[in-house]
Simulated scan of single mutants.
Amino acid sequence: MALQTAPSASNTLAPASAWALVPPLGNLDAYITAVNRLPLLTHEEEQRYARQLRDDGNVDAAGRLVLSHLRLVVSISRQYLGYGLPHGDLIQEGNVGLMKAVKRFDPDQGVRLVSYAMHWIKAEIHEYILKNWRMVKVATTKAQRKLFFNLRSMKQGFKAGAVDADTHRDTLSEREIDLVAEQLNVKREEVIEMETRLSGGDILLDPAPSDDGEQAFGPIAYLADAGHEPTAMLESRQRDMLATDGIATALDSLDARSRRIVEQRWLQVNDDGSGGMTLHQLAAEYGVSAERIRQIEVAAMKKMRKALAEYA
């Protein structure tokens, strides 16, 4: 009976479509086990498939390049598990970076795809971490991103090399801050600022009620500015208009005697802080009784309220 020889790496990639080798959906452990069993490409195979993709746009060749490097993404993603993000999401973002690398890979550059793809895989994972590690981004510029990842790595190194209890604290000491600034070639103030951002956390502005139904206290209670609430701003603007143009319009609706009585009784302020003329002083000036002045004042105020209502 003839002996059967073991299939080579090229023979294991024999299916007409490379995507036929994609493992079936399942849990994360099953996926990692499956991609680790996918065969690696030889240098000659990698060059051939890369040229087919570049020259002919062969999608099947691109699939073979991607599949043979899925284990690389799994390996790189494990380095970022300390950020508290799901491993599956890190792998997914790394796969996006791998596909971008395959699309841009030039086989004539003289490097293997594995070396070229590492940059793209890490770049996509970095972007995902910066967007999802906190609700508010801790790093926006290129220099801040570099400092973010290097500072976390160096802090873990400081903790691993600590020999006394005092060095196990979460914050950096003055000596460690100077060391980080020197090694990363950044300003000391930048290290302190990034350290402050890393040590902080997200706080809900409006926390949900507790189990007993009581409303939990949150920053929204003292951050809210009622003065800038749209309704309050409209009401304040309307009051200002009534106090200026509205009063002037209402006074114009009065006759000369009624206007003088209202102005003297309600709008006149003397230098000593006292009010205007009294009912008896106005009565003596117009030669009528104080009660008559009061009646004219009441009628004038009623007419003014009507004019203000129409103005508003």
Rank of each mutant, 00 (worst) to 15 (best):
F105N: 03
E190T: 11
T167S: 14
Q183D: 06
E214C: 00
L234R: 15
A165L: 13
A165D: 13
Y49Q: 15
L279A: 02
I129N: 07
V298E: 15
E297W: 01
A50S: 14
E176D: 06
A290N: 08
D106M: 05
H69A: 11
Y116C: 11
G287A: 02
I247S: 03
Q109C: 13
H168L: 14
A16D: 12
H168Q: 15
A9T: 09
L242P: 06
L25T: 10
V102A: 06
G97Y: 04
I177D: 05
S17Y: 10
R260D: 07
R112N: 08
P7M: 11
N185A: 15
L65S: 10
A117L: 10
E44N: 04
T5C: 00
I192Q: 13
A309G: 14
A117D: 02
V22I: 13
M118E: 09
V73W: 05
L308F: 02
A232W: 09
V136G: 06
H43E: 15
V180L: 00
M304P: 05
P107W: 10
A50K: 13
S115K: 01
G94C: 03
A6S: 11
M118L: 03
E291G: 09
K146V: 01
D240Q: 15
P107N: 09
R64A: 07
A143Y: 09
M241K: 08
M154Y: 02
T141K: 09
M233A: 15
H87C: 11
T167C: 01
V66E: 09
K187L: 06
D206I: 11
A312R: 13
G200A: 11
E124Y: 01
R265Y: 00
G246E: 10
A290K: 02
R259H: 01
N95D: 14
R259A: 12
V73S: 03
R175I: 10
E124K: 05
Q156L: 06
L198N: 02
A6L: 13
S153R: 07
G273L: 06
Y311C: 04
L70R: 14
K302E: 12
E263I: 15
T141W: 01
F105K: 09
I76G: 02
L90F: 12
